[in-house]
Amino acid sequence: MQAGDMTGKAVLVTGAAAGLGRATAIRLARAGADVAIVDIDAANLAETAMAIEMEGVRVLNRPADLAARENCLAVVADAAAAFGRLDALCNVAGIMIPSHTTSMSAEAYEKTIAINLSAPFYLCQAAIPHLLETDGAIVNVTSCAAFRGQAYFAAYCATKAGLTHMTKALAMEYTHKPIRINAVAPGGMMTTLASNIRLLEDGDRSLLSRISPLRGLVEIDEVAEVVAFLATDAARAFHGACLNVDKGITAD
Rank of each mutant, 00 (worst) to 15 (best):
Val38Arg: 14
Gly21Leu: 05
Ala119Arg: 04
Asp41Lys: 04
Cys144Asp: 15
Ala114Tyr: 02
Leu12Cys: 06
Leu20Pro: 00
Glu107Asp: 13
Asp39Gly: 08
Arg27Phe: 01
Cys157His: 04
Ala158Ile: 06
Gly8Glu: 09
Thr191Asp: 00
Leu132Lys: 08
Leu132Tyr: 14
Ala151Thr: 13
Glu219Trp: 08
Val11His: 02
Thr7His: 11
Lys111Gln: 13
Glu133His: 14
Lys160Gly: 02
Asn71Asp: 12
Ile52Phe: 01
Cys242Leu: 11
Gly187Asn: 08
Ala64Thr: 02
Ala137Glu: 07
Leu12Met: 13
Val223Ala: 08
Gly94Cys: 06
Arg30Pro: 00
Leu199Asp: 13
Ala16Lys: 00
Thr142Lys: 05
Gly19Cys: 10
Thr159Phe: 04
Ala80Ile: 03
Asn140Lys: 06
Leu193Gly: 01
Val75Phe: 04
Phe147Glu: 13
Thr14Cys: 14
Arg69Glu: 09
Gly4Thr: 06
Ala64Lys: 01
Glu201Gln: 15
Leu73Asp: 06
Lys247Thr: 14
Ala151Glu: 14
Pro178Cys: 09
Tyr109Cys: 14
Met190Tyr: 12
Ala81His: 10
Gly248His: 15
Ile138Cys: 05
Ala18Leu: 12
Ala51Cys: 12
Leu170Gly: 03
Ala145Met: 07
Ala155Cys: 15
Leu193Asp: 06
Val218Tyr: 02
Gly15Arg: 05
Leu163Tyr: 04
Ala106Lys: 15
Asp34Val: 03
Ala185Leu: 02
His239Phe: 05
Thr14Ile: 07
Ala108Ser: 13
His130Lys: 09
Asn140Ser: 11
Asp204Thr: 09
Met6Cys: 14
Pro120Ala: 05
Tyr122Gly: 00
Pro98Ala: 11
Ile197Asp: 15
Val13Cys: 03
Phe229Arg: 01
Arg62Trp: 05
Ile179Leu: 10
Asp221Phe: 04
Thr167Pro: 07
Asn182Ile: 06
Arg27Glu: 13
Asp252Asn: 10
Val92Arg: 01
Ala16Tyr: 01
Val223Pro: 02
Asn182Trp: 01
Gly94Tyr: 00
Asp34Phe: 03
Leu45Gly: 02
Glu219His: 09
Ile181Ser: 03
Ala23Asp: 09
Ala154Met: 11
Pro98Arg: 11
Ala234Ile: 15
Thr142Gly: 03
Ala228Ser: 12
Leu193Cys: 05
Ile37Thr: 00
Ser118Asn: 12
Val226Tyr: 05
Phe121Ser: 03
Ala146Ile: 09
Asp65Glu: 07
Ile26Lys: 02
Asn116Lys: 08
